[in-house]
């Protein structure tokens, strides 16, 4: 750098903070390769037909293979449809969400399922439910006066 005199202590700190940031980035990259991914770019829907076109016109939980489920959830003013998703312990569930009206959120406690739900877009994210119990999910994006009423649960039944 032309004519830029930097104190030696400041140089050390600039290097150390750069290394710290690099370490964080590498750790993040490693986790991405281990399957900790963000919702991606799914094909768009026509938001005006969400209530009439499959799969969101009749949103349901579908078993694709033993222990592997696809859960279609329509997130609307002010309810999740369906608001109960029942699976046996050890299941992997892939959630597909959209909205027919305004922006919403979908977050399942004690998991990394945490997505925005937008009209015309499909939010896709998965989770594995090993422990039996009830897992609350809520809407966490303001969507009108009934926003705080929106919740549901994933019910994980013990393996029989």
């Amino acid at each position: 750098m032309n004519g830029l005199r930097i104190d030696s202590y400041e140089k050390v700190w600039m290097l150390a903070s750069g290394v710290l940031l690099a370490v964080f980035l590498v750790a993040v990259a490693a986790s991405v390769f281990q399957g900790f991914s963000l919702p991606g770019d799914e094909p768009r829907l026509d938001p005006t037909r969400t209530m009439v076109d499959p799969p969101f016109a009749q949103p349901a939980v579908v078993e694709r293979a033993p222990g592997r489920y696809d859960a279609y959830v329509r997130v609307q003013i002010w309810a999740f449809v369906p608001n109960e998703i029942k699976v046996p312990a050890g299941s992997s569930v892939t959630f597909y969400l959209t909205s027919p009206d305004v922006q919403h959120g979908f977050m399942i406690e004690r998991t990394n399922v945490n997505v925005m739900v937008l009209p015309g877009q499909v939010s896709k994210i998965s989770a594995r439910f090993d422990k039996p119990g009830e897992y609350l999910f809520v809407c966490h994006e303001y969507c009108g006066i009934g926003h705080h009423l929106m919740s549901g649960k994933v019910i994980v039944t013990p393996k029989s």
């Binding site: 710290l20 281990q34 399957g35 900790f36 989770a127 594995r128």
Partner: peptide, 20 residues
């Protein structure tokens, strides 16, 4: 402190399970 706080959230991410 930054390393500790960042690390604890990172471990929480890992603990809460893969999203794929």
């Amino acid at each position: 402190l930054s390393l500790a706080l960042w690390g604890s959230v990172y471990l929480t991410l890992l603990f809460r399970g893969s999203t794929q």
